[in-house]
Design a protein around this nucleic acid. Structure first.
Lengths: 241, 241
DNA sequence: CGTTTATTTGACGCGGTTCAATCAGTGTGG
DNA sequence: CCACACTGATTGAACCGCGTCAAATAAACG
């Protein structure tokens, strides 16, 4: 929802945006508070449960969104049911295919997800008059490209153990960027074993076995079925290949 | 080299640019002839033999280029020598990492290659004053992202036969976009078996065997070692998974 | 030609898949 | 509160696609 008039005039930034990460690290950082207010008029928050489809492959592009909370899986499928997850979007990542008329992949909520949705027309109008906005989007796209290519290496050339280690490493460094190669990190896996398998180009059985192997090696601890603790990020990284 | 003054004043477009595909389908299409002339002052043609390194992983970004002729391999490597090709650039694709200070991959000439090289500063200056130029770059980046994700599916989920078929299909449709699922196409493979293997996440022996299998199936003919003919693109596509 | 490099072909073994059974966690209704 | 069903995870055993190693051809090059 758009910010209320009174708030706007008090501090210039819509309520909705104040605690949003996209305001700083995301694409909205390119906007002044006036522009933010203008854009906020065309946005609304949406909440989705795990498993819900956010974007369908082949559907028309009619809106975009920023991920405010949670994790979104981007996947592509073959006719016969084989699936590959081609990207994971965390807050405050941008969601959607700018400049395209049709979506080329499926987006699903991996966890409980909150989105800030904006209509295609509103964003494109604002982008046309604010090159800085398109520039932010360009940076995000370049980051996604780098990530996709990194995963290509992982999926194409690493062993099952290295792939699972790489996934855990990526989530760990997202969870606590400060712990980059050193220090303990704990997080909840946003993916089921089946999802992880679809991300890594493996089967869920193999993922399960390799998680067990990593646990036996002492580089991770697993609590319940989803909580993972990495006592020493460095030693996990060493197993990434 | 920049176009000569006399030419510029005659028809407005630098000689160098007249036959260049980037002028139409590439990023330079965003520029007026005056702007093209301005940019051409800071560009020069470069020719490279197969195998030459065009961009080194980890080097500073000091220039960009458009591929005018030939094929360029983009690859990433692991410390122990394993390598994965993460992209193929054909004319008139753009080469280089905009907005980054350091290159994150290696670019090598796969075939004889001709580039139109432009300095980082010159392109960034022009990009700052011409949003349309950045927009073109955005489109190219989005296309590369789509391609990287498509390959992720290929490498992560397809069988060896399907992967080799997918590579041939991609090159065939690039060679003759008109033959899209129908009609005969002949082309020279721009990759050695080893390169193809690095692209597909296989070994060169497997690539060789699957090419043999496709030949025995009758969906391709192989002349010498690099010339490939696809009599019926549709039947090749059917094997892509 | 002789040498070198790219490709093909064969035999064998292993990593990861497949199929199947068991177990754990979670909600549901009697 | 327990039995039951259901979904997700683990574990085991057999199989097989692809990698590995090795040797034979074929093409490229001086």
């Amino acid at each position: 929802m758009a910010g209320k008039r009174s708030d706007i005039h008090t501090d210039g930034v819509p309520v909705l945006c104040r605690s949003c990460e996209a305001r700083h690290r995301g694409i909205c950082g390119a906007l002044t508070s006036d522009e933010l207010t203008e854009l906020a008029r065309h946005t609304h928050k949406a909440r989705h449960a795990p498993g819900e489809e956010l974007i369908g492959d082949g559907t028309d592009v009619d809106s975009f969104a920023n991920v405010m909370r949670g994790v979104v899986k981007l996947s592509k499928g073959l006719e016969d049911g084989r699936r590959q997850i081609v990207g994971l979007q965390f807050a405050p990542d941008f969601l959607g295919r700018p400049f395209g008329s049709e979506n080329t992949l499926t987006a699903e909520a991996a966890s409980e997800v909150e989105l800030c949705v904006v209509s295609k027309t509103a964003l494109e109008r604002m982008m046309a008059e604010k090159p800085a906005l398109e520039n932010r989007l360009m940076h995000q796209t370049l980051r996604e490209l780098d990530e996709a290519r990194d995963w290509l290496v992982t999926v194409g050339r690493k062993t099952a153990l290295e792939r699972v280690a790489s996934l855990l490493h990526r989530i760990a460094t997202y969870t606590d960027p400060a712990a980059e190669s050193g220090g303990e990190v704990t997080f909840e896996l946003p993916l089921t074993r089946a999802d992880a398998a679809d991300f890594l180009g493996l089967t869920l059985e193999t993922v399960s076995r390799q998680l067990g192997a990593l646990r036996r090696l002492g580089v991770i601890r697993i609590t319940g079925t989803r909580m993972v603790t990495v006592p020493e990020l460095r030693s996990l990284k060493a197993l990434c290949g």
